[in-house]
Nucleic acid binder design. Structure first.
Lengths: 344, 344
DNA sequence: CGCTGTCATGATAGCGCTACCATTCCTTTT
DNA sequence: AAAAGGAATGGTAGCGCTATCATGACAGCG
């Protein structure tokens, strides 16, 4: 079988797709009744509904959602904008979102900003052009143009990942508090020479917020807050490399507080290879609660963030809003859990 | 003879979004010229183009892509259907796709089948309704209804992940050969008691294909091919659990060939915790070439599949086809590489 | 018996944009 | 000088669907 696109019918009717009118004719009703039978089944008689469904089946009708959306200026599309797909964290949130949204018949229009706010603005523009019913975006920071555009938009906006006063709805967790929490754990354990290792925190600014919390806590304990910032994104390899870097710059380091589990696990595995004992020679802490952290020896001390849950909750709240129900709380704190392993 | 707009306007226009006509008016040209200025800039004079762009800027015009798509029966949407988002493999392919497609101005409409072919059919129906310019789907297997629907569809279809005669375009690798390759490696290393561990291979049938290759190779060497099939999806935890299961059922096992790296790494880390020596007590092999495999000790023997590259290549081929260029090869083998670590 | 209300259905008029063809005003060719 | 071609622009007519209002049928009520 070979496909030929070259002579694609140059007429006005470019496709020979079955239309709703044809269905209506076959069912012996008017187009508008056929439309109702499919979209508001409760508004037509059972007889009509059945004959329309039968015609749909027979003709192999596939609704033209583009036309439907134009006519109703509504669509079952939801825009999802994330800064990265390499970082599994966002993928897990997407998973939670998708699971819940697809069950309600929504489709996800996915955009990736690569941590670039101008790119985000472009994506938002495009997505608004698709008359999405809602927009979900990771984070509370946007550029000015994007902010303006969204403020004038008349559909729900959900900002996830971090907690705070956003434009509309918000589901997330307090990253400053998370950083503080882990720092407190390290201090409580008796560590006094603690290095924070982050990766591109200007972009992954939530890691920066955790560093802020870390600083707060250490400073209130009169402890120095050395920082190593990598300029690659977090990965096992980067974590492994950073271990050497830390030990070179700060030879007395007792504990490393990593911005995420990829870095931390990479460092932990590297320490093992180098014959360093964790936590005796060096303690290691992460953030996220990735499965990997539970499977290394010693288990990684980390902060568990409920990512899929965050996605599911965000989707549920959005659906409530979209179905016209009152939304009582505009902000949801999904919290986090300190998970102490053997690595600290 | 003037028409009464005040009445009509009140009736229908639900949003006060700026339209192309308003832009045209502000720029002092006809709507169609404004449309051209934005979509085929080379077809209008520079003066016109500039005044239109200025008007767009001033009015904050955001093109209604739904209307545009309906009128032109084209859209810059590309449907991507994958069986899972938990499995990082698909996410990496998506990443490669997205990177390339977004650069060309396409948007991704993402669907997740959860390894259910009926769900796939539903998603395809919906996506066709959005007049996507192309469809990308993971795998060559579809149900009958889906097959029929797609055969009558007049846009490019790209099937990725596995190599074979598909409906249209195809970018993938030969999973049977990959299974054979790893099995050969294990045999060459001298192992004679080899267990294959897969997870839900009825659904993740590509793992099943690798098992076929594995069987072929072992049988031609007169070696038994015991199989353990888990009924959870691949994960570190499942891999860890399966280790016990293998050693209970087949105490003489020398090597385990895992369907993927998550399972293999999980088993490797579990072996370490249990004080088993890898590969002396038990050899472990995986599939995928996940970064994790390189960071454990010993390094995991695995088969590296170029996943992002697969996504990028698929996207590039699709774009070639969409821009009307001839596509010489309909099938692309991205190959795989045996990566021998210390685990075998 | 008219009046009102409810239910099922239909006629009409767009949603905001672009394909198609026509028009205008040049420049180039013979 | 007339014909032909080209570049820029515009008028018209939809794309396939649904919102809105209109209609007809029939039940319940005083």
């Amino acid at each position: 079988m070979s496909r030929d696109f070259s002579h694609a019918a140059k007429q006005r009717r470019r496709s020979d797709q079955v239309t709703l009118s044809q269905v209506a004719e076959a069912a012996g009703v008017s187009p508008i009744t056929a439309s109702r039978a499919l979209n508001h089944p409760e508004k037509v008689s059972e007889r009509t509904r059945n004959s329309v469904l039968k015609a749909v089946e027979q003709l192999g009708y596939v609704p033209n959602l583009v036309a439907g959306s134009l006519a109703s200026s509504r669509s079952k599309l939801i825009a999802v904008i994330v800064p990265s797909l390499i970082n599994t964290v966002f993928v897990e949130v997407i998973k939670g979102l998708q699971e819940t949204l697809e069950a309600e018949g929504y489709q996800i229009l996915l955009g990736n900003t690569d941590y670039d706010l101008d790119r985000e603005y472009q994506l938002v523009r495009t997505f608004l052009g698709w008359s999405c019913s809602a927009l979900i975006t990771a984070g509370l920071r946007h550029n000015q143009a994007c902010q303006t555009l969204l403020n004038n938009w008349e559909h729900p906006i959900m900002e996830v990942m971090e907690l705070g006063q956003g434009m509309d709805l918000n589901v997330g967790l307090d990253h400053v508090a998370a950083g503080r929490c882990m720092a407190k754990h390290l201090v409580d354990k008796g560590y006094r020479h603690i290095v924070y290792v982050g990766a591109r925190m200007a972009q992954d600014y939530r890691a920066g917020m955790r560093y802020e919390g870390h600083q707060e806590m250490l400073q209130s304990n009169k402890i120095e807050t050395p920082l190593i910032e990598l300029d690659t994104l977090g990965s096992l390899q980067a974590g492994a490399d950073s271990l050497t870097q830390v030990l070179t710059h700060y030879p007395h380091t007792q504990a490393i507080h990593f911005a995420n589990d990829d870095l931390a696990a990479g460092a932990l595995l590297a320490a093992q290879r180098q014959g360093l004992s964790v936590p005796n020679d060096i303690a290691i802490a992460g953030f996220n609660g990735l499965p990997l952290g539970q499977h290394v020896t010693p288990q990684l001390t980390t902060i568990l963030s409920p990512r899929e849950e965050m996605g599911r909750l965000a989707a549920k709240e959005l659906i409530r809003r979209l179905s016209g129900k009152n939304v009582y709380r505009r902000q949801h704190d999904v919290g986090f859990t300190l998970q102490v392993g053997g690595s600290t």
